[in-house]
């Protein structure tokens, strides 16, 4: 799906760890050590309580499909209509992504379907976190707290 024409993120000092994480095929979130709030996108302080005492941890990579549109207009980086999706991560934050290994149709893309992260190399330095329909039923998976 990916061609060189996909717009690429330019990491900043505050987000560098996230993109290093995706290069290592880890989805990194941040959590406040004061109020325990988990948040995204990255910043070196807690947007809930303003504490600077935060830690980085690896998310489970599990999510559910929160909403999407299927763009019909041609985009140079995509072949045919493609879904721009919002997914709710198991840890709480929501993120924008694309859904892979799945037909880009309303029938195939059911809201709340379980998903799991994939990492797609889009340039030498950047792997993007994309999501695919989960292969394992969520009930059989260990709780998120054990994954850090």
């Amino acid at each position: 799906m990916d061609k060189p024409t996909r717009s690429l993120p330019q990491p900043t000092p505050e987000t560098q760890h996230f993109w290093e994480g995706t290069q290592a095929e880890q989805l990194l979130l941040q959590r406040c050590t004061q109020c325990t709030h988990t948040y995204f996108p990255p910043r070196p302080f807690c947007p809930s309580c303003s504490s600077r005492s935060v830690e980085v941890y690896a998310a489970s990579g599990r999510a559910t499909l929160a909403s999407y549109v299927i763009n019909q207009r041609p985009h140079p980086a995509f072949d045919g209509p493609y879904a721009i999706a919002l997914v709710d991560l198991e840890e709480g934050p929501r993120m924008m992504t694309n859904i892979v290994e799945c037909a880009q149709t309303p029938e195939a893309l059911q809201l709340d379907m379980p998903l799991e992260v994939r990492f797609e190399q889009v340039s030498e330095d950047i792997k993007l976190p994309l999501f695919a329909p989960a292969k394992i039923a969520p009930a059989k998976i260990a709780p998120a707290g054990e994954s850090k």
Binding site: R6, S7, P9, Q10, W19, N71, H75, A77, M96
Partner: peptide
């Protein structure tokens, strides 16, 4: 630019 645009919103 980092967390939305790469996923193709137009």
């Amino acid at each position: 630019g980092q967390f939305e645009v790469p996923f193709g919103p137009m």
